[in-house]
Structure formats: C-alpha cells, structure tokens
C-alpha cells in the first residue's frame, strides 16, 4: 500500500514541478482519496483543506511554521481559488504580520519577501455550485515577486504599511490601504490578541493581522501566465 503514504518531500525543484504537473486536471477527490483525506462537505469549517491536501500530495512538511512550505527548495505553495469567471475569488494570505517585531526589517529581509521569493501558485476551481470533491486542480505556475512587473508596487505597499505599524498607527490600517498588498485581521477568534506599539508609544493589545495579496493582483499574475479569454483579465 505504498501509494497511500504521503510522498516524501521532493528533492529538487524539477521533482516538485513534475509532481504538481501530474496533478493538473485531477479533482480534489481524486487527490484526497489515495491519501485517505476526508473531503469536507463545505470549506467553512475546513478552510485549509485544499491547501493541506495539495501540501500533503506534494510532500510539503513546513506546516504552519513561518518558513516556505518546501523550505529546502525555497518554494512556497499557494492555492488560488478560481471562480466560474476564471478570476481568483479571494485575496491570498501570505503570512502573519509580526506586529511586535517589524523594527529592523526591510523589504529584502521581511517575512513577506521571503514567502514570496518563489511561490508555486496552484489554481483550484472554486465554483460554489460544484461539490468540493469534483473541483479540479489547474496547472501550477512558479512565480517570483522579484521578477514581477509590479514588484516595486509590492515593495512600496509593504514599506508603507510596515512604517505605519512601526509608528503606532496600526489601528488606522484598513484593508483599503495598499495597492497590491493589504493587511487584514486574521485570528483564531476575537480573544486572540498580540501586543504592538500604539499611537502613544506604549504597548497596545491588538488583533493578529495577516498580509494578503489582493485578488486583482493575483488575477494579473495569472493573466500574464495563462492563456485566458480577455473577459477574465
């Protein structure tokens, strides 16, 4: 029953790409079944199912640690839920905002930049009308923020938002800020809290936040890579 065991981490980038290439066109049910993963009826309570299934199928071991999923290859796996119109249905979570540890970081050394240095975007169908098990996985694309035409915008967004947090304006940050990168609350529940410097300079309890790539941005990334009818661009 070797086929039921999750694969070992890929040893090379080529091996990883070959594995993800072999998944293109398969349904989540096809992928989950041999791994003995239960396919949930909806994703509200199993939000991480799609990502975890693909991580398992591809041999990722990083879990929730703040390192790339394939840390030895420096590759982060990101699934992109794609709607019926061919566009990403939601923004893409990058990593947690270290609200208490942004000092001393610059873009090059930031968690965001490290996470986005090499990203394997895997589109997954996310038409709500289609059962989860029947949703197909698309062809993956290996993307690097340093090679993206909008890399300067990405950096500028990070610098602006990080600067605001450092200067204590974290509560003024809304999801409207940032052209391609945004900050939104992300916590287990309302009681989850982190300490950061407030506007007056002292510690302030605030909700955890995450960095997100805007859906319009990832849509442009997809548009630059995939052959798509103009209507989805």
């Amino acid at each position: 029953m070797l086929e039921h065991r999750p694969p070992d981490p890929p040893r090379t980038e080529e091996e990883l790409l070959a594995r993800v290439r072999a998944l293109a066109g398969k349904t989540l049910g096809d992928i989950a079944r041999p791994l003995h993963l239960r396919v949930p009826r909806d994703l509200r309570r199993d939000k991480g199912f799609v990502g975890q299934t693909l991580e398992t199928a591809l041999g990722a071991r990083a879990g929730s640690r703040p390192i790339p999923d394939f840390w030895h290859l420096g590759v982060e796996l990101k699934t992109l839920p794609i709607g019926k119109d061919g566009r990403p249905r939601e923004s893409t979570y990058v990593c947690a905002v270290p609200v208490d540890a942004l000092h001393g970081l610059v873009w090059e050394t930031s968690h965001v930049r490290r996470k986005l240095a090499r990203v394997l975007f895997v589109p997954v169908e996310a038409d709500p009308a289609r059962p989860i098990a029947d949703r197909r996985v698309g062809r993956a694309t290996l993307w690097s923020c340093d090679d993206d035409p909008e890399r300067d915008t990405l950096r500028a967004d990070w610098e602006e938002l990080a600067s605001l947090i450092r200067q204590g304006f974290i509560d003024r940050i809304t999801a409207h800020r940032g052209r391609v990168l945004q900050i939104r609350p992300k916590g287990a529940d309302a009681h989850d809290a982190r300490a950061t410097v407030g506007e007056d300079g002292w510690l302030l309890a605030t909700q955890p936040r995450g960095w997100y790539l805007r859906a319009a941005f990832t849509n442009r990334v997809l548009d630059r890579h995939y052959a798509r009818p103009a209507a989805t661009s």
């Binding site: 694309t141 035409p149 630059r224």
Partner: peptide, 9 residues
C-alpha cells in the same frame, strides 16, 4: 516545461 515560470505576455 512541466511548469513554466511567468513571463511577459
């Protein structure tokens, strides 16, 4: 290639 990197259109 199995998975191409993003290139300018």
């Amino acid at each position: 290639s199995p998975v191409a990197t993003v290139t300018a259109s």
